[in-house]
Design a protein around this nucleic acid. Structure first.
Length: 424
DNA sequence: TCTGGGGTCCTAGGACCC
DNA sequence: TCTGGGGTCCTAGGACCC
């Protein structure tokens, strides 16, 4: 049996790179992409990284540097990034026997058996060149016998220019040399809390972790970290998931562009999130039985009165009908709302999913909101996806003043209409 | 003044049952 | 006075990921 081979292909500075693609004048300029409401920095070009500006910092904390270094900021333009992502992924799909799209900017490839036909390093260099040539997006490629090692190989590809952004980490001796150089916090699955605990126990490098007894780690930490140790030692525990997993929950929530104090406005926001969540649910081909609504004030100002609360309801039967969710959400909202607070965020979560197909036998079951529900929802979804306009329930309100801030949005270069500011 | 959103998995602890 | 033990299911919260 031949050893497994995984590659991790990861786009460099993806959101910032997408923005630069259509602005050649910014090629060597510092570019940052902001989170919703233009609140935090969520992506940085390499020039911005070089200035020492950290991922996730609030924009207002680095306003001085932005001005001083003339950093060009963009509001996040997900329609653009999703479209560029698709182009990159379809190129990878054409080259690799099997692919798992892991996130908008990275994919695992299964290359087991490829080495019989083509040198692995040469394969990596070839797909890198192809993506670069066809999309203008630069990627790093890490190749290794496990996903966790492929992640680290990719990290090395990005860190050390001499690698040409492609690293083949199939050789165990080479694995150990790299692990010794890397801080334990660089390991996939080791976050802030865990790395602090590990450091306190004298486990500093990735190699220290790899050499820890997995049984002991299982007892004192978790099965997850135990698996990570095995993966660091070249034993593959995480397989390629080429079919996207069906969702188990759908969450729609937003911080408001400005604080909400009015009951009616908050209710509109809830209606909007319910509508969006139900759309996502139908796109998944699912029905949901459980709905949760939450509201909360700002968290960062201690002097301001705080209130946060959530309520959950179980519907009598699973549905994907926006109207049934709206009705239930409003019931929850009426119990949840307290006047006298400045609300900063609200959200809606759907859980307890069923396949719509499995429930077709129940079509004749009359639901609370009457017949033709499925047909009505389908018509609405069709119109809203057509790019020719929007239909929605009056409960959502029209162009509300609390809408998300997106002051620096780039144009829809590659898509039409699909992400109008303030609409979704 | 100004601090994102959307997910997954695991675990601990309570409720309940026999 | 003495007051078991083990199993399941559910939920909330923690930790992690991008």
């Amino acid at each position: 049996m031949s050893q497994k081979v995984f590659a991790l292909v990861d786009c460099n500075n993806f959101y910032a790179s997408c923005e630069k693609l259509f602005r050649p004048d910014l090629k060597y300029k510092p570019v940052a992409v902001l989170s919703n409401n233009d609140g935090c920095i969520v992506a940085r070009s390499k020039e911005v990284k070089a200035l020492g500006i950290k991922m996730g910092v609030p924009v207002h904390q680095v306003q001085e540097q932005i001005k001083q270094h003339q950093i060009v900021c963009f509001s996040s333009n997900y329609a653009l990034y999703a479209d560029m992502s698709q182009r990159v992924m379809s190129l990878l799909e054409a080259e690799a026997p099997e692919i798992e799209i892991y996130s908008i900017d990275e994919a695992f490839l299964k290359l087991t058996g490829v080495e019989a036909v083509e040198d692995l390093l040469a394969f990596g260099q070839r797909i890198k060149a192809k993506v670069d040539q066809c999309t203008g997006i630069t990627v790093g490629v890490g190749i290794a016998p496990t996903k966790t090692l492929a992640k680290l190989a990719n990290h090395a590809a990005k860190t050390y220019p001499a690698t040409g952004s492609v690293v083949n980490l199939m050789d165990p001796a080479r694995q150990r040399r790299l692990l010794a150089l890397l801080d334990v916090s660089e390991v996939w699955g080791v976050g802030r809390r865990l790395s602090k605990r590990l450091q306190e126990q004298g486990i500093h490098t990735a190699l220290d972790l790899a050499d820890t007894d997995p049984k002991l780690v299982r007892r004192e930490y978790s099965v997850v970290l135990e698996r990570t140790i095995r993966e660091l030692n070249g034993i593959s525990c995480l397989s390629l998931e080429s079919l996207p997993a069906t969702k188990k929950q759908i969450l729609c929530s937003r911080s408001f562009g400005s604080r909400i104090t009015e009951r009616a406005q908050l209710k509109e926001a809830i209606a909007k999130y319910v509508t969006r969540a139900a759309e996502k649910l139908r796109a998944e081909g699912c029905l949901a039985r459980v709905l949760q609504v939450f509201i909360r004030t700002g968290m960062f100002n201690a002097s301001e009165p705080q209130y946060r609360n959530a309520l959950t309801i179980e519907l009598t039967q699973p549905t994907d009908d926006t109207r049934a969710f709206l009705k239930a959400a409003f019931q929850l909202f009426d119990k949840l709302f307290r006047p006298g607070f400045r609300y900063a965020k609200a959200g809606v979560m759907l859980t307890d999913f069923y396949s719509s197909h499995a429930y077709q036998a129940d079509l004749f079951h009359t639901d609370a909101v009457g017949d033709h529900g499925a047909a009505l929802m389908a018509v609405m979804d069709n119109i809203n996806q057509s790019g020719h306009g929007q239909v929605f329930f009056a409960a959502q309100g029209l162009a509300p003043e609390w809408s998300m801030k997106r002051q620096f949005l780039s144009p829809a270069y590659t898509t039409q209409w699909s992400d109008l500011p303030s609409v979704r």
